[in-house]
């Protein structure tokens, strides 16, 4: 949960005499692309070696806690007894699709994963949008009223939220608002994405889904919000010392205009890229929150996969999450360079 500021944009100096064909902007883009590709290759290698080279019997790991047909066990044994180089070549033919099907569902892993992508995107997307809007607003107000009561209360609250496991916060909300402890009526559903027998295609069905998402989205929004607020506050405080704001004031602009038209747009830069840089942290939240609220997404699937353990499924989910985060980091870097030309070589 590290607090992430601006992305690492320190440009590598181009080798003399090379890369002259490309302009500075294009060269930056190409170097970022190659670096992301390198990271992805590293994930693919890691995914292979972690599960093969560890001490102990891989077949035992793949079949832990399950009754496996002796014939299938023999086939797996043969596969893992092949020379490591041969296994590696086999793996590299298609590193995105494991050779074995999901151990729990007994169907190809992508058939298990694809239907789960929608609910996760819905949950994480809604929470991210809400957290960004509210976090920016909160950060701007805190920075502008720095040291005043609003700032002190907001900063203390964000610090406490920062120290809270998000799934615990979700469980407390569940017990208070869904089960109804302390004599409150339980108004929200205890879990799932929709009530049984409801057609999600209709308007009533959509309303039902929205109603089910209120508590999980609220939990994630509140947890993510803290970081956006802290970063926005710090970056606006940085910006407030700049000379051009003094100039704007000297021109006779009102304080609110100086803030809205001059300071905030410039301070938005780190926050904009934070939306993408934060994806790794967001995925962590989705895993535990989907589990607590029994939402049928990638997060609860990950928990199912680790409980099995269902190694082919877990491997593929890890690859998917990593690829998503690598892509998001690339977008953040390129976006930052586009918004702030100073970082380009």
């Amino acid at each position: 949960m590290a607090l992430i500021g601006a992305p690492d944009v320190a440009p590598t100096p181009p080798a003399p005499g090379r890369g002259r064909v490309l302009g500075p902007g294009a060269r930056f883009t190409v170097s970022r692309l190659l670096s992301s590709l390198g990271t992805l290759v590293f994930v693919i290698l890691f995914n292979f070696f972690l599960f093969r080279l560890l001490p102990g019997d891989p077949v035992a790991l793949y079949t832990r806690g399950r009754d496996v047909d002796p014939e299938i066990r023999r086939q797996m044994q043969a596969r893992f007894n092949a020379p490591i180089a041969e296994q590696f070549v086999q793996y590299l033919k298609n590193p995105f699709v494991p050779e074995l099907p999901s151990q729990q569902f007994s169907i190809p892993v992508w058939d298990v994963i694809v239907p789960r992508i929608g609910p996760t995107l819905l949950l994480v997307g809604t929470a991210t949008v809400l957290a960004t809007v509210l976090g920016v607003w909160l950060g701007v107000r805190s920075a502008w009223k720095r040291g005043e009561r609003f700032d002190r209360v907001a900063t203390t609250t964000t610090l406490v939220l920062y120290s809270m496991p998000e799934f615990w916060f979700g469980m407390i909300l569940l017990i208070v608002f869904s089960v109804g402890a302390f004599g409150l009526p339980g108004i929200f559903p205890v879990g799932g994405l929709s009530s049984p027998g409801v057609d999600v295609g209709t308007f009533a069905g959509l309303a039902d889904v929205a109603w089910h998402l209120v508590l999980p989205v609220f939990t994630l929004t509140v947890i993510y919000l803290a970081e956006y607020a802290l970063v926005m506050r710090a970056s606006l405080i940085d910006e407030m010392g700049q000379d051009y704001l003094q100039t704007a004031r000297a021109k006779g602009l009102r304080d609110a205009d100086v803030r809205r038209r001059h300071a905030v747009p410039n301070a938005m830069l780190p926050t904009t890229t934070l939306i993408f840089l934060n994806l790794g942290f967001v995925i962590g939240g989705a895993i535990t929150i989907e589990y607590v609220f029994s939402l049928p997404g990638l997060g609860s699937l990950t928990v199912q996969a680790l409980r099995g353990p269902d190694i082919p499924l877990l491997q593929t989910l890890f690859l998917l999450f990593s690829a998503a985060v690598i892509l998001a980091n690339l977008v953040a870097d390129l976006l930052y360079a586009r918004l702030d030309p100073r970082v380009r070589t």
Binding site: M1, T39, V43, L50, F51, L54, L61, L279, G280, F281, I283, G284, I287, T288, T302, L306, P309, I311, L314, Q315, L317, F318, F321, S322, V325, I326, N329
Partner: peptide
């Protein structure tokens, strides 16, 4: 730094 923390930790803990 880039690899998401929780998925990586889950994979490592499951294997170990």
């Amino acid at each position: 730094l880039v690899i998401p923390f929780l998925p990586l930790a889950i994979v490592l803990a499951t294997v170990l």
